[in-house]
Amino acid sequence: MSEAAHGHDEMDECVAALTQVHAFLHGEMPDADADAIRHHLHACERCMENFEIEATINEMIKRAHRAVHPPETLVSRVMSLRIKRT
């Protein structure tokens, strides 16, 4: 659907959907609201394109900030060390 084909009410739906896209991506909204966003995204190509961009950026951020957990053996060794003050 082209931007010119969007009516006033439809544009309001687009704005509402896109302002909630982060909460939707993170599963931070009630199921009924998420269903409404999902329905709008499937019906609106322009919003789906925006959503896909946001989802890609979100995934890149997640990959870049993965928590690194040290091996359990290292944790045990560090915890067993005692610092002596002189």
Rank of each mutant, 00 (worst) to 15 (best):
M1L: 07
M1H: 08
S2G: 14
S2Q: 15
S2A: 14
S2T: 15
E3G: 11
E3R: 09
E3L: 14
A4V: 12
A5P: 04
A5E: 15
H6N: 08
H6T: 06
H6Y: 14
H6W: 08
G7N: 02
H8Y: 11
H8R: 15
H8G: 09
D9F: 11
D9G: 09
E10L: 05
E10A: 07
E10I: 02
E10W: 03
M11N: 14
D12T: 13
D12V: 10
D12Q: 14
E13I: 02
E13W: 07
E13G: 03
V15L: 10
V15M: 12
V15P: 06
A16H: 07
L18D: 02
L18F: 03
L18K: 01
T19L: 07
T19D: 11
Q20A: 11
Q20S: 15
V21D: 00
V21H: 02
V21L: 07
H22M: 07
H22T: 15
L25H: 02
L25W: 04
L25D: 01
L25C: 05
L25A: 08
H26V: 07
H26M: 12
G27H: 01
E28G: 07
E28T: 05
M29V: 15
D31W: 04
A32C: 06
A32K: 13
D33I: 01
D33R: 02
A34P: 00
I37C: 00
I37W: 00
I37V: 12
H39S: 12
H39Y: 09
H39P: 03
H39C: 06
L41M: 08
H42N: 13
A43R: 12
A43N: 13
A43V: 10
A43G: 11
A43T: 12
C44P: 00
C44M: 10
E45C: 05
E45L: 06
R46Q: 07
E49G: 04
N50T: 15
E52H: 09
I53M: 12
I53G: 08
I53E: 13
E54M: 11
A55T: 04
T56L: 06
I57W: 03
I57L: 13
E59S: 09
E59F: 03
M60H: 10
M60T: 03
I61P: 00
I61Y: 04
K62S: 08
K62V: 03
K62N: 08
K62D: 07
A64T: 01
A64P: 01
H65T: 15
H65S: 14
R66F: 00
R66D: 01
A67Y: 05
H69V: 15
H69T: 15
H69L: 09
P70Q: 05
P70V: 11
P71N: 10
P71Y: 04
T73G: 06
T73H: 10
L74A: 03
L74Y: 02
V75M: 02
V75G: 01
V75A: 03
V75N: 04
V75Q: 01
S76T: 14
R77N: 06
R77G: 02
R77D: 04
M79V: 05
M79I: 11
S80Q: 11
S80K: 10
L81A: 15
L81Q: 14
L81E: 11
R82A: 14
I83C: 10
I83W: 08
I83K: 15
K84I: 12
R85C: 04
R85V: 07
T86V: 13
T86R: 13
